[in-house]
Amino acid sequence: MIWQFDIIILIFLVVAAIVSLRLKDLLGASMVFGIYSFLICLLWAEMGAVDVAFTEAAVGAGVSTVIMIATIFSTTRRSKD
């Protein structure tokens, strides 16, 4: 564990979470959510949870972003808030 690295990633995490919730374009929001997943995967690798990081990289940043984009393409891209 390296706490300087940890703090930097945690601050980026909060920024990514807020940006993905504030974007009015749902496609952009799900892209930023993919970035959020990658950052949190990095954080878990840093904390020594390699299996969890591996799963998050495959599931959170890969599959869940893809299925979210698939839903947005078949519904609507605009959001009011």
Partner: peptide, 15 residues
């Protein structure tokens, strides 16, 4: 208000 945004919020809560 948007259901997809609610789901993103749910995922953030979970992580």
């Amino acid at each position: 208000n948007n259901l997809i945004k609610k789901l993103i919020g749910m995922a953030i809560f979970q992580t």
